[in-house]
């Protein structure tokens, strides 16, 4: 049971309009581990999370969570499955009409019949875990970006999910908040045995906590392995990404005609 991966993605194809985003992506996400999905911006990492969460349906291929094909489930069964998943959105996505406490209490109130004192205790525990117990009366508008993400994290773990999906958890944070978030992701994984999927392009932070890494580019899995093995990977594309080199197989320049001809051609084109 514990050997089977929690999430299996099989030969996933997805396109938006005429643009092909995934051309056969497969991955296994093991239980209790932190799996990172990395890749340059615009490769559809967030789309992949939405496909796993069944907010989007693929053109072909399957996503199985705990053996269930999420895209074949009824709406009701899907909502039941989602109670076992938490998702941390890039923007935090706190409900703007509720304060911090109520935001964290929200999943408990809609999915459980717990008495009020117990909800209070649970919410305070979750807020304590992210270090924001004192901020429970603030409204989302009063929070900084890092605090918003921490509250959103507390909300995502309110129902003690088995799987948590992080969408760019570190992007746009100052070094202190970033460090706090990295610690939190790691600690939650260790303390609660959560299975985590981290979508990110912050290489250093992500590699420091991930157990296994998938690198996607051009709609396919370009490389996979442990952080240590990726570090010494010789494929120049992977190496460029992992080491953050500005130019390489992924060119610095957007495709264009030859620079000299473009400069010297003083014709009509702008």
């Amino acid at each position: 049971m514990t050997d089977t991966p929690l999430v299996e993605v099989d030969d996933l194809h997805f396109s938006r309009g005429d643009k092909e985003i995934f051309r056969g992506v497969s991955m296994r996400i093991p239980r209790g581990k932190i799996t990172a999905i990395m890749g340059p911006s615009g490769t559809g990492k967030t789309t992949l999370l939405k496909l796993i969460g069944a907010q989007l349906a693929p053109d072909a291929g399957r996503v199985r969570i705990d053996g269930q094909d999420v895209h074949a489930l009824s709406r009701k069964a899907l909502f039941r499955l989602r109670r076992r998943m938490g998702m941390l959105f890039q923007s935090g996505a706190l409900f703007s009409d509720l304060d911090v406490f109520e935001n964290v209490a929200f999943p408990l109130r809609v999915h459980t019949d717990l008495p009020e004192p117990m909800i209070r205790d649970l919410v305070l525990m979750k807020l304590q875990a992210v270090g924001l117990r004192g901020a429970r009366h603030l409204t989302p508008a009063e929070l900084s970006g890092g605090m918003t993400r921490r509250v959103a994290l507390a909300r995502a773990i309110a129902l003690d999910p088995e799987l948590i999906l992080y969408d760019e958890p570190f992007v746009g944070q100052d070094p202190i908040s970033m460090g706090v978030l990295v610690q939190l992701v790691k600690r939650l994984n260790e303390a609660l045995g959560l299975t985590a999927v981290v979508v990110s392009h912050d290489i250093k932070e992500t590699l420091s906590i991930a157990d296994y890494v998938y690198v996607i580019a051009d709609g396919q899995v370009m490389a996979e392995g442990t952080p240590a093995s990726l570090d010494v990977e010789r494929d120049p594309r992977v190496s460029q990404f992992v080491h953050g080199e500005p130019d390489g197989p992924v060119p610095f320049h957007y495709p264009a005609v030859d620079f000299y001809r473009d400069i010297l051609d003083t014709g009509r084109q702008r």
Binding site: K50, G53, Q55, F79, R80, R82, R83, M85, G86, M87, F89, Q90, S91, A93, L94, F95, S96, F106, P107, V110, H111, A152, R155
Partner: peptide
């Protein structure tokens, strides 16, 4: 619209609330 733009509707769906 603002709730949609700030992903509040999506996150509600992920929490399992329609």
């Amino acid at each position: 619209g603002l709730m949609k733009a700030t992903e509040q509707l999506t996150s509600m769906e992920m929490i399992g609330v329609d």
